[in-house]
Nucleic acid binder design. Structure first.
Lengths: 249, 249
DNA sequence: CGACTCGTTGAGTGATATCAAACCCGGTGG
DNA sequence: CCACCGGGTTTGATATCACTCAACGAGTCG
């Protein structure tokens, strides 16, 4: 297996996009004990209320999402994840899962030994820093979602989600910023932005009619992402994509 | 100054509620360089878009909140903070603020040197673990807020916020679980739960009429917090208050 | 060819927003 | 001591965005 074929090389790449690593760091990450595992949608990777598992799932390919349930049975998706994300980074040091994680499409993961990952994060400052940044960016995304769901109207909400996924995919090298395949049903889209599937349908139609998106099944294309960003009130600041550069003055 | 008077002793206590610390850890925390600083509401502690400061603000007393703005000018409060919270833990390793932090009442803080705090977190595994837990719980709260704002109706939303603040205050030793003084205007309450101040007013009235809360100015009292929790769809799981105990099986 | 899931559309409803006015209360200054 | 002021609260009337219910179409799978 060549170095780039190593399943954890994607984790190395991701962390290096957050903070510089040494050769030793890279080797330590690649030496982590793990097992590959594939989930088919809509399999659960983690269930709300479960005690922490012995491993952490890292996404090699495919999409997944986090969700929480209200007492009424209503579902809220709280984030979407793609190749390079550590799915249970949010639970790395917590005893019990406060939300579920489900596969959205065929999901290839590396299940990394949790204790070993904890050690690496705590014992190696440079890796720790990169992981901190990653976890803090996750949290920043949650905050943006609170704003999205709390204070934007339907068109902006849906458009914002489309922008976020596009920008994050592009940053992860998964699309060209012109469009992508989003395997979310309109029901799930609604659960992500706090709307009904019916209203998502009408909202997507409206965005199409405005010329902001073009759809074909679950493929979404944008001719002019900038216009969509304006409609979505989207600013990439909260994604902190520039972390690897020197601190701003 | 006796040990308990030390402004950072509250930070020690908070971290010990998250994970065990050694004597050396405690000493290292108390040895952090800091300066006390008081803010009067509604002063800004941090502004969205600003580059990272040279220090991190730790709350000694008083309340503060985080907020983000939409392009329309709408405001969304994304969390509320009290004594024992590190306000910019969420930015500890990020270059630029993605949200603002404002004082809600007279706010006494210790401004801890950021680089020193970073070092402590990265170099001392036990402190690092406690800080990780703290940051991950913050993130868990953001997720709960996404659910709150996205999928609960007005009564449950407002009630949920009241429950969260009560439970967190009680955990921090700031109230008895029977009620408290909440220095939020109804406008701010609305900004926290994604409603209008007018609707918050009607919702509070409805909660009073249901006998779930009693109000006198900005004092809120509950005769039966359990009933309020049911109405709020509140479960404290997401606050992870049991972290200090052994991992669940 | 059912049976099922997902997407689409229409009609009616409802929860929350908006607009506007009155009220309350602590503070200030004459 | 009173008049006034300003921020916050309360209430009413109306508007609107998004939800609900319901039906139908298209695609897929066994």
């Amino acid at each position: 297996m060549s170095r780039d074929d190593h399943p954890l090389s994607k984790l190395v790449r991701k962390l290096e996009s957050r903070a510089p690593l040494s050769d030793g760091d890279r080797a330590a990450i690649l030496a982590l004990p793990f097992a590959e595992r594939t989930y088919e949608a809509p399999a659960y990777v983690l269930r709300e209320g479960e005690p922490a598992k012995k491993h952490c799932s890292f996404v090699i390919s495919g999409l997944a999402f986090r969700q929480k349930l209200a007492a009424t049975g209503a579902r809220q998706i709280v984030s979407i994840h793609m190749a390079g994300d550590v799915l249970d980074l949010q639970h790395l040091f917590l005893n019990r899962a406060d939300h579920s994680v489900q596969a959205l499409s065929r999901l290839e993961t590396a299940e990394i030994d949790r204790a070993a990952l904890q050690d690496l994060v705590l014992e190696r400052p440079t890796i720790g820093r990169a992981m901190w940044i990653d976890a803090l960016i996750d949290a920043s995304i949650f905050r943006e979602w609170v704003l999205n769901v709390g204070r934007r109207d339907a068109k902006a909400r849906v458009a914002h989600l489309l922008c976020e996924v596009s920008v994050r995919m592009e940053a992860a090298g998964l699309n060209d910023g012109q469009g992508y395949h989003l395997p979310l049903t309109q029901e799930q889209l609604g659960d992500a932005v706090g709307l009904t599937s019916v209203h998502v349908n009408r909202t997507l139609k409206a965005l199409s009619e405005l010329g902001l998106i073009r759809r074909d099944k679950r493929h979404v294309r944008f001719d002019d992402l900038d216009r969509l960003k304006v409609a979505a009130d989207f600013s990439a600041l909260y994604l902190h994509l520039d972390q690897s550069r020197a601190p701003a003055e």
